[in-house]
Simulated scan of single mutants.
Amino acid sequence: MRLTTPRLHLRPFRTSDLTAVQQIYGNPKLEAMAGWAPQTTLAGSQQVLADFMQSDEVLALVTRQTQQVIGSIGIHRQAPDATTRELGFILAEAYWGQGLMLEAVQAVTAYGFEQLQLTAIWVGHFQSNQQSQRVIEKAGFPFEYELERPRLFADDQPTTECYYQLTQAAYQHQKNK
């Protein structure tokens, strides 16, 4: 899958993306917002990149202007239901507040409903992650529910996670406005 927005190329990851993966996925601030342990070793970053390269669900976000990898976005299968998927994304901190992730989310959402013929797309964020909340809401995903998650890592406190769902019907309604 390859998608293009006005300012981004969304493409499969390549081995040449390792430095960008190290920088993005090694940022403790970003990883805490996403619920992952930061990748502090080269081997950890190589494994993340290898996993991305083996998947047909995760794309690199690449600026059209500089051709630099600035994040990732995935539309993950939700077994056993092949008609719904879960959206996940991360963006390098230097690119926050520019509307880039909204562009990517809208492109992947359109792909999911128009090409994959999904019936629904889910997305969640930790309650404290207001940046993701804004992207999700601007992309038209209605709030569904929240739940408290146990600790992700040994030294974490439980956290509240908020979930949103956009259905095919709601997507079509928004598109036709």
Score class of each variant (00 low, 15 high):
5 T>Q: 00
8 L>H: 00
8 L>W: 00
9 H>A: 08
10 L>V: 02
11 R>S: 02
11 R>M: 06
13 F>W: 02
13 F>S: 00
17 D>A: 10
19 T>D: 06
22 Q>C: 14
27 N>R: 04
31 E>Y: 03
33 M>G: 04
35 G>N: 10
36 W>G: 10
39 Q>S: 15
40 T>Y: 14
42 L>G: 03
43 A>G: 10
44 G>N: 02
45 S>L: 13
48 V>F: 06
49 L>H: 08
49 L>A: 03
51 D>N: 11
52 F>H: 10
54 Q>Y: 02
59 L>R: 01
59 L>F: 01
59 L>D: 00
61 L>I: 09
61 L>A: 00
63 T>M: 08
68 Q>I: 04
70 I>Y: 05
77 R>F: 07
80 P>D: 12
80 P>E: 11
84 T>D: 13
87 L>T: 10
89 F>A: 02
91 L>T: 03
91 L>K: 11
94 A>K: 14
98 Q>H: 11
99 G>D: 05
104 A>V: 03
105 V>F: 00
110 A>T: 07
110 A>C: 07
111 Y>Q: 08
113 F>R: 04
113 F>T: 02
114 E>G: 05
117 Q>W: 09
120 A>M: 11
121 I>N: 07
125 H>D: 11
126 F>R: 10
130 Q>H: 12
131 Q>S: 11
132 S>E: 03
133 Q>R: 15
135 V>H: 03
136 I>S: 07
137 E>W: 00
140 G>D: 08
144 E>I: 10
145 Y>G: 07
146 E>A: 13
151 R>F: 07
153 F>I: 11
156 D>F: 07
156 D>P: 02
160 T>M: 12
161 E>R: 10
161 E>W: 00
162 C>R: 14
164 Y>E: 05
165 Q>F: 04
168 Q>M: 08
169 A>P: 09
169 A>E: 13
169 A>Q: 15
173 H>R: 13
175 K>T: 13
176 N>Q: 13
176 N>H: 15
